[in-house]
Each structure stands twice: as structure tokens, then as C-alpha cells.
């Protein structure tokens, strides 16, 4: 998923954009939130914990 990056303009990225932030791997934007950090950090879900 590609789209305009926003780090220079400072504007909030549109849903579906890829944000390029130093120190983070570019990640797509689901549901309006820009997701930061590793994709595989441990979570608990569905009553189970990874």
C-alpha cells in the first residue's frame, strides 16, 4: 500500500498511506491510526497470550 508520506509536511497521514518515520519500519495505516513499532510484539488476544 503506497501513498504520500507526511514526515516533512507534518500533516496527519491519510488512511492507507505509508508513513516513513526514522527508527520505525514503514507501516500501512489501518482505521486511521498510524501504527508504530514492531509488527510482532507480544500480545494477548482471543483469551490467549503469544
Amino acid at each position: 500500500m503506497n501513498g504520500p508520506t507526511s514526515t516533512e509536511s507534518g500533516a496527519a497521514p491519510q488512511s492507507g498511506a505509508v508513513l516513513d518515520v526514522p527508527g520505525f519500519a514503514p507501516l500501512a495505516v489501518p482505521s486511521g491510526l498510524v501504527i508504530l513499532g514492531a509488527e510482532d510484539a507480544p500480545v494477548c488476544a482471543d483469551g490467549r497470550c503469544a
Partner: peptide, 10 residues
């Protein structure tokens, strides 16, 4: 700030 999300025990 309802702008960024971080998932899991990072």
C-alpha cells in the same frame, strides 16, 4: 493522541 497506535509489549 488518537493518531498513533503501538501494539503489544514493545
Amino acid at each position: 493522541d488518537r493518531a498513533y497506535g503501538v501494539s503489544g509489549a514493545q
